[in-house]
Computed example of a mutant assay.
Amino acid sequence: MIELGLPWVLATLPLPILAWRFLPRAKERRAGALRVPFFDEMIGSVRAGVLGRVKRFGAIAAMIGAWSAMVVAAAQPSWVGEPQSIPTQGRDLMLALDLSGSMAQQDFAVNDRPIDRLSIVKAVAKRFVEDREGDRLGLILFGSRAYLQTPLTTDRETVGQMLDEAELGLAGKETAIGDAIGLAVKRLGERTAEERVLVLLSDGASNAGVMDPIRAAEFARQAGIRIYTIGIGADTRAFGGLGLMSLGGGDSLDEETLRRVAETTGGNYFRATSTEGLIEVYRRIDELEPSEGRESHVRPMRALFHFPLGAAFVLSAMLVMAHVAGALGWNWTAGRGR
């Protein structure tokens, strides 16, 4: 299909006619008159030289064609093909999930029924993973030590299955937040993606491992990795609520460290004290780090302006050559008459 980039330019097509119709004619300069007895024969000779090859109507048609072709070229015609899908580059996003013993506490609720922290976290995180179309996702599980459960992959189904298989105590009963960040930095640092993100969720304080969380966050910042931290656990003063702000939390939750880790890397810290609050946290992260790898469509385009432009050049060249040929014919005729 042919489209015009500047279709309004076509409105200039009648400009020559309007100029001929409404602009005043140039005044003729009249000098002294001289009667020439063979005037008719001279005019006939001139007409034969100038318009012999290109008749009057042919010259007018050539001028109209040249003008029209130039206007069409200025309108930027192009051929546009059918839409074609292309993949775009998404983010490298690593999830780090706390499997320490405190995740067994049943201080969340679904339909007014108590449920343990790990079960609700797995359900909400799995939904988050399913919506990250086009991103490369990975999963780190940490307790006393940190383990890479799933390397970065675009297979969201596999990441979801690994989440389902996560069990309490699988990585130990303590909490090695610094080691989890360090492992994520190592894996994400090997990638060349422009957007590299770690989402770390914990309900406690770092009390195991060899890496200090703040020091690990510095390494993440140097590697260009943003970290979003989530502290979970029902408020000891008021069960429920959205819980995006700090509400006091459990006694073991180290909110200050989680907040400093996020701020050091340019991320954000969130506090979730209920099921609805945790869902909202992941929704907020999805807004802050939108999936850019969703399939997009483009339509191939090829410019066609050179075709009418070339036609205008050819017609203009023909008119110029006809004019030059006429002038040379007049001079040759005049030379013979001497």
Rank of each mutant, 00 (worst) to 15 (best):
A166F: 03
T265Y: 10
T264Q: 14
A223M: 13
G224S: 14
R187Q: 13
P151E: 13
L163P: 06
L170E: 07
A171N: 07
E194H: 05
D254P: 09
A262E: 02
I177E: 09
R221W: 07
A262Y: 00
G204A: 10
L152E: 08
A205G: 15
R215E: 11
A223G: 05
S206C: 03
E218I: 01
L258I: 08
S246Y: 14
T264Y: 09
G169S: 14
R226V: 07
L170D: 05
I214Q: 14
M245N: 15
M211S: 08
A223V: 00
G209K: 08
I225R: 13
Q222I: 12
G204H: 08
V210W: 01
A220T: 07
G267M: 10
A208C: 04
D203Y: 10
L258Y: 13
V159D: 13
A205Q: 13
S252W: 01
I225F: 14
G189W: 06
R187L: 01
L247A: 07
G250C: 00
I214V: 15
T175Y: 09
V159E: 13
L247R: 12
E157W: 03
N207A: 02
A220R: 09
G182F: 05
T175W: 10
D212Q: 05
E174D: 15
A220P: 13
G250Q: 14
G231I: 09
F219W: 15
T153S: 15
A217C: 10
M245Y: 02
F239W: 03
G172L: 03
N207Y: 04
G160L: 04
G233C: 10
T265V: 11
A262I: 01
A217Q: 08
E190K: 05
K186N: 15
E195T: 10
T154R: 12
D164Y: 03
K173A: 07
T257H: 01
S202V: 02
G266Y: 04
M211N: 14
E255L: 06
Q222W: 00
L188E: 09
G189I: 00
A262K: 00
V159A: 14
A184K: 06
V197Y: 04
S246D: 15
R226T: 12
I214H: 08
I230N: 03
V199L: 10
A184Q: 09
T158L: 15
G189L: 06
K186H: 12
P151A: 10
R196H: 04
F219Q: 13
G266F: 07
V185N: 03
K173Y: 00
L198Q: 05
D212L: 02
G172I: 05
L244C: 04
G249P: 00
S202K: 08
A166I: 02
P213H: 03
I177S: 12
V197C: 03
S246F: 11
R259N: 07
A238F: 04
R260W: 03
N207V: 02
